[in-house]
């Protein structure tokens, strides 16, 4: 987890989010079912202003409850801070409480100003759920855009960390050592007064003779010079072969011209 630099708070949110995501999905599905049932009930019962109070109450519970649950489910499916969850819970409670009050007082107690209070309670609940959801979506868009911005800035500017700096230094040191060692000239070391035994002059060591035509040397020459490379195109092979020959001739001719010049100076 350290690799992704996630702090303890964020870890908690992710844990909550995982379990709440499934709960949110269930609530969202329940809300959709309620809305469908509500629409079907309204059509089948042909609800109008003068319909029976029981049918009106059921229609309002199906539609209002469905809308509340859909919004609650949507909010729960989004990862958010604990304050976001508080707002979601408050919005849901307000909306469901408003529906409960409506179903208990309708139609006898359904008059002003009670109507205003209940309606306001429901609207505040729904707006809280809508607002919280909208705020989360906006935050998500902003954060995903900032990620893009970070990536593009990484492309433009090389980010150096301790490891890459160390690697760069090592590469520079290695290449410097290679260069300086290739320029070194060694003098013979004086080993002091050493007397060699007689056997030193008699043989070079234990020898083993093996019959071997060593045709690998020719093969290696062909492989390294490109003759054997299967490129899939005979034309490419031909061209590479011609190029090699041309380069060899060029090198040889260059040597010849310089040497001929020297000899001309010498003889003529």
């Amino acid at each position: 987890m350290d690799k992704y630099n996630i702090d303890e708070d964020s870890l908690g949110i992710l844990r909550r989010g995982t379990s709440l995501y499934y709960a949110g999905s269930v609530i969202f599905a329940a809300g959709i079912v309620l809305l469908i049932v509500g629409v079907a009930f309204i059509i089948m019962s042909q609800i109008h202003y003068g319909s029976e109070p029981g049918k009106i109450i059921l229609s309002v519970i199906f539609m209002g409850g469905g809308a509340s649950l859909v919004l609650t489910g949507t909010n729960l499916m989004m990862k958010q801070t604990k304050y976001g969850y508080y707002i979601t819970a408050a919005g849901t409670i307000l909306a469901l409480l408003a529906l409960a009050i409506f179903s208990s007082i309708y139609p006898q107690g359904w008059y002003y100003p009670t109507v205003s209070y209940v309606l306001a309670m429901y609207i505040v609940g729904i707006l809280a759920l809508l607002g919280n959801g909208f705020a989360n979506v906006v935050l998500w868009i902003i954060s995903s855009k900032s990620e893009t911005a970070t990536r593009s800035s990484q492309e433009n500017y090389t980010v150096h960390n301790d490891e890459s700096i160390q690697r760069d230094i090592e590469e520079a040191v290695q290449s410097s050592i290679q260069q300086s060692s290739s320029e070194l000239k060694f003098k013979d070391q004086n080993f002091g007064n050493v007397r060699l035994g007689k056997a030193f002059n008699e043989s070079r060591g234990k020898t083993t003779r093996v019959k071997d035509d060593m045709n690998e040397a020719d093969k290696l020459k062909r492989t390294t010079s490109g003759n054997k490379v299967k490129s899939g195109s005979s034309e490419v092979d031909k061209i590479s072969s011609q190029l090699r020959e041309a380069m060899e001739n060029q090198t040889a001719e260059k040597g010849v011209i310089e040497k001929i010049k020297d000899r001309f100076d010498k003889y003529f």
């Binding site: 070079r204 234990k206 020898t207 003779r209 093996v210 019959k211 071997d212 060593m214």
Partner: peptide
């Protein structure tokens, strides 16, 4: 050495 390879070791 000719058609042979000679290995000298110590």
């Amino acid at each position: 050495e000719g058609e042979d390879v000679v290995f000298t070791q110590e």
